[in-house]
């Protein structure tokens, strides 16, 4: 069995004459948390709705667990659980009734597993109350319980931390990590919050204006832009010396900034010292995904 649980190829969606999604390709692997990052209106939600079969793609293919969503809808869907946007459940039913409702739409879910899922999302105490009395966090958790009912291989969560308080966000994050690491699920998480993706995901796809700009491991993305910050004296001399070997920018507080290149950085340092420059401080800095994002999208705004 292949490790690829969700595969998207050449996915496009055109509404009227406007192409909203301009050919997406990516694969998701077992046991990873995949981030879907982009500003509002980038096409995240449309893409997710195509993944779960709510919107028909104009072209391209989506396979979940090896089954094509268009051609083999029921098989594909039984591999997947999802929350699209807010976890909108039947507010006039109790949490348990909601679960029963969705369980009845699945081939076979026994009571014990339902109770296990309720346990997992820690809703045991309130499960027999009407959903309209739930807080947003509880609804979010019930939504996840519902998504887990079918024992899916892939979990698709659209903005799972939306509207949660910091406490709730952390809980959700840990829970998602748990599902991926311990239960071996593939989790696709969309968000417009960089910090969240950075903390939660293994890999991330950056999407802007309907196209994927980059797909890579979070560490790689960050490493790509790692830099060194120099505090040197005298500055002008140091700048001249460094600009001969690499690109130099003047940073704030009289610092000099160069890219970080393994092995090279220490030799630059030696060079400076040899030429009589005093190196007070030499810092390797991991940039935030934020900077990266701004760079990649050319300054497109993000919350």
């Amino acid at each position: 069995m292949s490790d690829i649980t969700l595969s998207v190829k050449g996915l496009r969606k055109t509404i009227g004459k406007k192409e909203i999604i301009k050919g997406l390709d990516f694969d998701l692997k077992r046991g990873e948390v995949f981030g879907f990052l982009g500003p509002n209106g980038a096409g995240k939600t449309t893409t997710i709705r195509m993944l779960v079969g709510l919107i028909k793609p104009s072209s391209g293919s989506i396979e979940i667990g090896g089954y094509n969503v268009r051609k083999n809808f029921t098989k594909a869907m039984s591999q997947m659980g999802c929350i699209v946007e807010n976890p909108e459940l039947y507010s006039y039913l109790t949490g348990w009734e909601n679960l029963e409702h969705f369980a009845r739409m699945l081939p076979e879910v026994d009571r014990a597993y339902m109770e296990y899922v309720v346990d997992l999302v820690r809703l045991n105490e309130r499960i027999h109350d009407q959903v309209k009395t739930y807080s947003l966090g509880m609804r979010q958790r019930l939504g996840i319980a519902q998504a887990l009912l079918g024992k899916p291989k892939v979990l698709i969560l659209d903005e799972p931390t939306n509207g949660l308080d910091p406490m709730g966000i952390r809980e959700m994050r840990n829970f998602i990590r748990y599902l991926a690491e311990e239960e071996g699920l593939t989790v696709l998480v969309s968000s417009h919050l960089l910090s969240e993706i950075q903390l939660m995901c293994d890999r991330v796809a950056i999407i802007s204006k309907g196209a994927v700009i980059k797909v890579d491991y979070v560490e790689n993305l960050l490493a790509m832009q790692e830099r060194v910050i120099w505090q040197v004296e005298p500055r002008e001399t140091a700048k001249d010396i460094l600009s001969e070997v690499t690109s130099v920018v003047e940073g704030p507080d009289g610092a000099l900034i160069t890219p970080y290149i393994e092995n090279a950085a220490s030799s630059w340092n030696r060079l400076l010292v040899e030429k009589g420059v005093e190196v007070k401080e030499m810092n390797r800095k991991l940039p935030a995904l934020e900077d990266l994002f701004l760079e990649l999208t050319g300054g497109e705004s993000i919350d």
């Binding site: 709705r49 779960v52 809808f73 029921t74 869907m77 909108e88 459940l89 969705f102 739409m105 699945l106």
Partner: peptide, 14 residues
């Protein structure tokens, strides 16, 4: 209008 249709139609049911 309540949005529940999204859950209803992402089940393995045609």
């Amino acid at each position: 209008s309540a949005g529940t249709v999204k859950l209803l139609l992402t089940r393995p049911v045609k």
